[in-house]
Design a protein around this nucleic acid. Structure first.
Length: 283
DNA sequence: GACCAGGTGTCCG
DNA sequence: CGGACACCTGGT
């Protein structure tokens, strides 16, 4: 995977950071592509949270972002988180023989696969099963409010994402009130696995197939969620989560089966484009 | 009230 | 190993 290396980050000395020389990144599309659940958009202003971090970002122009953060936070946290520098140009030649993917790429261009924290991705995608995006978003927000810690940012109260310990305590304390349904015991299980040191998500960064096997061995984690955690939380861009939308696209435009091996480390990006475009067509 | 939404565990052949 | 089925919850 290539990256753009000419990003410029300037401290405006007023609490904001200006990021220029951005290539092929759309903040709006990236956030709306269904890979993350802790953001809100108010006009052009996007408030984004991850762990105990928060920022507000505006895309001023195609190649320019304005961000509320320190320069250190922008460089070491938010730019990698949004994965602004990844370059998917090489993908174009890999999909050149497929009309649907050409269209999907045209429509989705600007989406980057974000680099979320694996713990947060695991919890969010366990919650995602058989839920739609608004429901996932509200459930995750509720989980943070009930189990995380409150803090103030620009005159408003926000909540951190719960650590495994905090999550477990919150689940025991609030139980059904979190409206997690049958996913509650799944979350309880993974929280305990991390707390007991039987599961170390950072150790799963070594090898994709091993990571997948480990993740799928968790109670409540099947192939879909495991692939989402691998793709969005562990940086395995060859992961290919198949959900109902992707399956619909495969059935309708690929005669029911797709060979993803030729996409290699771009398979995850192909998947994201198929999802984003497929949902657009489905509506 | 039925049906569905970014699945998974369990049971059965 | 593949297919059927139940499952919490909130919205239409």
């Amino acid at each position: 995977m290539q990256t753009y290396k000419d990003l410029e980050v300037v401290d405006n000395k007023d609490g904001t950071i200006c990021i220029t020389n951005i290539h092929g990144f759309s903040l709006d599309k990236t956030l709306k592509s269904g890979q993350c659940f802790r953001y809100e958009q108010n006009g052009a202003i996007c408030t984004i949270q991850s762990e105990d971090m928060i920022t507000k970002v505006i895309q001023k122009e195609a190649d320019k972002l304005l961000m509320i953060a320190t320069k250190e936070e922008a460089i070491n946290y938010w730019i990698p988180y949004l994965n602004i520098e990844d370059n998917y140009d090489k993908l174009i030649s890999l999909i050149a023989d497929n009309e649907f993917l050409i269209e999907a790429e045209r429509f989705s261009r600007g989406i980057k696969i974000m680099k979320q924290k694996p713990w947060e991705a695991l919890v969010c995608f366990i919650i995602s099963q058989r839920n739609n995006i608004p429901k996932i978003t509200s459930t995750v927000a509720k989980l943070c409010k009930m189990c995380g810690n409150s803090f103030e940012f620009m005159g408003k109260v926000y909540y951190t994402f719960p650590t495994p310990q905090e999550l477990l305590e919150g689940l025991n304390k609030y139980g059904e009130q979190l409206s997690l349904g049958y996913r509650l015991p799944y979350l309880e299980y993974v929280a305990k696995e991390v707390i007991n040191n039987r599961l170390n998500l950072e150790d799963l960064r070594k090898e994709y197939n091993q990571a997948l096997t480990e993740l799928e061995s968790l109670y409540g984690v099947g192939p879909k969620v495991a692939n989402c955690v691998a793709l969005f939380g562990l940086g395995y861009t060859s992961a290919f989560p198949v959900d109902v939308w992707i399956q619909r696209v495969i059935d309708e435009y690929f005669n029911g089966c797709i060979d993803i091996s030729k996409y290699g480390e771009y398979a995850g990006i192909v998947q994201q484009y198929m999802f984003f475009y497929g949902k657009h067509l489905g509506k």
